[in-house]
Amino acid sequence: MEFIHALLEYTFLQKALLTSVMVGIICGVIGCFIILRGMALMGDAISHAVLPGVAISYMLGINFFFGAVLTGVLTAVGIGYVSQNSRIKNDAAIGIIFTAFFAIGIILISLVKSSTDLYHILFGNVLAVRTSDMWITLVIGIIILAAVYFFYKELLVSSFDPTMSAAYGLPNRLIHYFLMTLLTMVTVASLQTVGVILVVAMLITPAATAYLLTNRLSVMIFMSAAFGAISAIFGLFLSLIYNVASGAAIVLVSAFLFTLAFLFSPKQGVLFRTIRARKVKSALRDKSYS
């Protein structure tokens, strides 16, 4: 009750809540495609790689969105280039390139800004969300949701069967970089809510939770968005009540939801799997004795 009361009273809280719910939703939506394409590591890489872009944007005095998208996409291209043109496998290429970008980012930020700013970019500071940040997040959110809505078919078929999509003429590589661009935008939108370090959790955990609960991509996307939003609301609530970091609280709520699904999902959960396996075994035993 106190939370709702505070929410009505303080506009900074309203902004924080609206921003983090939006972030929860778009991370959940994009996250579905990230985990289905086996690109969880890529999500981690891009989120770290926006750091130098943010720093350069500060230096040039432009909105950090532009710099972040630039270095995010550069990272995706660089990773693709290294893994295609050498014997280095994709995961190693990811590890090399994103850490290099991240290191550049740390140096640049320590040159131009104080360490508190670095701390906020790394771990988020949702209560400091300004009105302009909230609008940027909303606009990014609308762009992401519209993009997924309009290109749903293409995202689905190129994720499930890239050979078929190539065979009938879809530009798979373009779709990949399109998704990387969306991923970068999501990361930028998440900077203040959960920070670059933990954004990968918001991309992967709600989507993975939904993946355990449904066999339909469309349902998975809605569930994942809902889990993201629920995590954002409860996480923010907990961070206020117990005065802990908001990003960490949001991530822990989503991890808790995942744990529930992991244990109790009717089809994929550990509990029901064990029960089913026991039933099969005991049925076999009964038969062999009779």
Partner: peptide, 21 residues
């Protein structure tokens, strides 16, 4: 001619856990 060409991939190339009916 692409739209008039149907391709059936090798079964081992597919992700059979994909959430699709």
């Amino acid at each position: 001619m692409r739209k008039k060409i149907a391709y059936v991939p090798q079964r081992s190339d597919m992700d059979w856990t994909f959430p699709i009916s």
